Computed example of a mutant assay.
Amino acid sequence: MRETWYFLDSGYGTPSFNMAMDEVLMNWHSEGKIPPVLRFYGWKPAGISVGFFQKVGGSIDLENADKYGVELVRRQTGGRAVLHDDELTYSVLVSEDHPAMPKSIKEAYLVLSKGILEGYRALGIPAEFSIPEEKKKQAGSAVCFEEPSWYELMVDGKKAAGSAQTRKKGVILQHGSIPISMDIEKLFDLFIYPNEKVKERARRAFTNRAVAINDVLEQPVTFDEVKHAFKEGFLKGLDIDLEPFTPPEEMLREAAELEEKYKSEEWSYKREGRQKV
Score class of each variant (00 low, 15 high):
Ser141Cys: 08
Leu153Pro: 00
Ile178His: 04
Val198Ser: 10
Val155Met: 14
Ile184Gln: 05
Val198Arg: 12
Lys186Arg: 13
Pro132Asp: 12
Gly157Leu: 08
Pro132Leu: 09
Ser177Phe: 12
Gly157Phe: 10
Ser149Ala: 15
Pro148Gly: 04
Ile180Ala: 08
Leu173Ser: 08
Ala161Trp: 00
Gly176Lys: 04
Phe188Leu: 07
Phe191His: 08
Lys169Phe: 04
Ile184Glu: 06
Ala161Met: 05
Glu147Thr: 15
Asn195Leu: 04
Ala160Arg: 06
Cys144Glu: 03
Lys136His: 07
Ile178Ala: 10
Lys199Tyr: 09
Ala142Ser: 15
Asn195His: 12
Arg201Lys: 15
Gln174His: 13
Phe191Asp: 02
His175Ser: 04
Gln174Ser: 14
Asn195Gln: 01
Gly157Trp: 08
Ser181Ala: 04
Ile180Phe: 06
Glu134Ile: 09
Tyr151Ala: 03
Tyr193Phe: 15
Ser163His: 06
Asn195Val: 01
Ser141Leu: 15
Ala164Trp: 03
Lys186Phe: 02
Ser163Gln: 10
Met182Ala: 04
Val143Lys: 15
Lys158Leu: 06
Ile180His: 11
Phe145Thr: 05
Ile178Asn: 03
Asp156Trp: 01
Val198Met: 08
Lys158Gly: 10
Trp150Asp: 10
Asp183Phe: 06
Leu153Met: 15
Tyr193Cys: 02
Lys137Phe: 02
Leu187Asp: 00
Ile131Ser: 13
Lys159Glu: 09
Asp156Glu: 15
Ala202Ile: 01
Gly140Met: 07
Ser177Val: 10
Arg201Pro: 01
Lys186Asp: 00
Ala142Trp: 05
Glu200Leu: 14
Pro194Glu: 15
Ala161Asn: 00
Gly140Tyr: 02
Phe145Tyr: 15
Gly170Ile: 09
Lys136Gln: 14
Ala142Asp: 03
Asp189Met: 07
Glu152Cys: 05
Ile180Gln: 06
Ile131Gln: 14
Phe145Asp: 07
Gln174Asp: 10
Val155Glu: 14
Ser163Ala: 13
Pro132Ile: 13
Arg167Ser: 01
Tyr151Asn: 11
Ala142Val: 05
Ala164Pro: 02
Arg167Ala: 02
Gln165Val: 00
Ile172Thr: 09
Phe188Gly: 01
Val143Gly: 02
Glu196His: 07
Val155Trp: 11
Gln174Asn: 13
Ala160Gln: 11
Ala160Leu: 07
Lys186Thr: 01
Ala164Asn: 07
Gly170His: 11
Asp183Lys: 07
Gln165Trp: 00
Pro148Thr: 12
Ala202Val: 06
Ile180Ser: 10
Gln174Ala: 13
Asp156Val: 01
Ala139His: 09
Glu134Met: 02
Glu185Phe: 05
Ala161Arg: 00
Cys144His: 05
Glu200Met: 08
Met154Pro: 10
Pro132Glu: 13
Val155Thr: 09
Ser141Val: 15
Gly170Tyr: 07
Ala164His: 08
Asp183Arg: 12
Glu133Asn: 11
Pro179Thr: 10
Glu146Met: 09
